[in-house]
Design a protein around this nucleic acid. Sequence first.
DNA 1: CGGTTGCAGCCTTCAGAGAG
DNA 2: CTCTCTGAAGGCTGCAACCG
Length: 739
Amino acid sequence: MQCGNKHNWRMEILTYGTFHTLSHIKGKVSEWSKEHGSGTEPTNCFVSFRVSQGAWVRIPPLSFHVSFFMIVRSAGRVRCFWWSAISRQITWQYPPLVQFLVSSTHEFLSPTAAVRISSPASISQQTADFSSVVCYDIFVCPATLPAGLEQWTDGSKLTSLDRSSSRGDCALWRPRWVVVLTSLVSVVFVMFFTHYCCTLMHPHQLVQAHPTLMPSLCHSSNETAPSCASPADILTFIDTFYSSATLETSTRSHTVDRRFQEKVWSWLTSHPEVSVGRDRESNHLHLNDAERLAREADPEHAVRVFVSRERRWLAVAGHEPDETKVLPLEFALLSIIASHKSNGIFQTDLVKLSGQDKRSVPKRTDVLQEKGYIEKRAIQIKSVRTSLCVLRRFSKSDLSGAATAGGQEERLIDFRDFNDRLFAILREYKIIARTDLKNALGFADPWRWRVLSRALRKFERIGVLKRVRATSQYAHDMKKLHPCVMLVREPTERDYELFHEYSQNIYTDLEQEDGLELEDGAGPADATEDFAPAGADKAVGMVKQEGAVEEAGRTIPAWSPDRIIHNQIFDLVDQAGTSGITNLDILRAGFGSFFRRPLENTLARLVECWQLSQPLHLRHLAIVRDTALEKTITHYIHYSTANFQKLVDAGEASWEAVEFVPRNTKAEKISVPPIDAVPDLDENGLPKAVPTKELVKNGNASLLAGILTVNPADYNCTGNDPMPLRLKDNSYGKFSPWQ
DNA sequence: CGGTTGCAGCCTTCAGAGAG
DNA sequence: CTCTCTGAAGGCTGCAACCG
């Protein structure tokens, strides 16, 4: 890399080590111009940026020809971005922003070749980190001005100064050409153009850079011949692009007349990667001729515009062709998705258009999303829960485009938007009546209400919110409880993922509650009441500390047929910690109300004499029952011994309160180990006193002896099972299936 | 020969519509 | 309200082709 040529722009002087304000750089440029005189052309140049502590970035001369650079300092972090049209490399430290910048170059097709960043709001939507970025609006670089150009896109007339600058004068930093608004502290936005910039882009570079035309070109609506477009299609693309650009920027408009269309056509056809007809055989055609041929020829031989494979990859995937990054079938899907631009495409339609196997398409779109090429958003249209796939470059926050395009906005729910609104409401109210929530979301109709109900239940299972019943703030005297939704905690990304993905655990029992939810107030809490005739118990167990809120949602019982019930009970009690757990809570959390009597019976046996229920060395697995008073109603609270010990240590409980007291003469005869009994253990932690008389051969038996004693009828030995080998002396030796 | 990829069959789940 | 049917999505699995 050469440098040091006296004609070079010593940009590095400007930027080494520190960041400069625009006025500072202007001053430096002015000094340089005085020293060297304007009009001198740099032969080599490079720029070094110090982008962060100890990191230098050097831009090779070639890729610097038409580039823009910017340094953004935001939230204490500094990043550098640059984009080079000639090397067609987008290099970034922060992909979304650069992607955004490139897709925001709406005016690349304009003769004035302005690069524009539309609004700070768009930036913050794209990059959360850059929410404080307020840099905008325009930097303009005069092209080798097209002949006949009389005015700029904003309607102002060209001046002689404009014309002279376009011939190479360094008018770059005039306010006319560079308008950069910087906020005072949060950002320094600096753009550098070399003198080469003043010669601006060759038309083909403009076309390359165009965010809309290339995908449009790459995917015409002609399904029989994808990746090509008719001349009429091209004109449609141009019209569409400029009409949408006008909508977005009401302050400026651009006249797309025939002359302009012809100009774009000439740019296109001179682009080396655009082929009109096969092998560029018709690139020489004027727009009029191409249109005439397209009209006259039969459909199979009509003039069509193709782009190269490389160009398609760049437009669609954003990088050079690389089938290790995007597999061929994935690229086919990506191409279709890209052709639908910001509207996106429903996955169901994607299956039809691609012709690929319906079971393979979801997997591929998932992969594409993982790789960052597309955005896949869960939506519900009519009865179908599916996904909307949008090329990442075109993704935006609202679905209005897709909804309108589909003409089914009344039957489309975007779950991301829905979740945002739902949690915004819950954050505001913390607890809200289900009917109010329904109205706030505008989900009054049965279909949406059903969707909302399911979503609430899903989120409840995830643990983000809770369905409860609460008294109204306007009815202090009336104790009527209303079904409500309460925010438990802020949802995380993982929670949203769980919400979107299918999960057996989450969906279990959802169907049991379907239908019940649709009638307000007929929730599962009412069902619980049916099984809990002892109203006293229910009140104790369900009232929360707020006093006015009851649990209304249903907890999935943790019962598993593969686990011993006593172990499950202990786990539930132990998990309750030092707060303890009541009969009813164990029932709800573990088994379901149908198991009430058996559970209470089992619990009573476990705790009646907890000092005996476990042998001394396993006493940490015992359950202690304490008695509590709620108003005038007594109820049991259970703790694991370890947790109860913590309470004792904290002076909040005493062992004497739970000590076993014999109530009858029979019980008096049992020898109960005292509370502070210490087990007599050997070095392995096993009790020294082994009750030998219950064991086979007094506890000194082989595995085989044990098996033979049990003699399981359904145990079949396989070749992989260890086998005891009977030795000659009738003892047993090492096992081996093959010996 | 093992890993990767694409495809197809079979299955379950979800959600809505419609009949009884 | 319940049941059945339908369409869509997607998980699991096995098979075949391809490649290094």
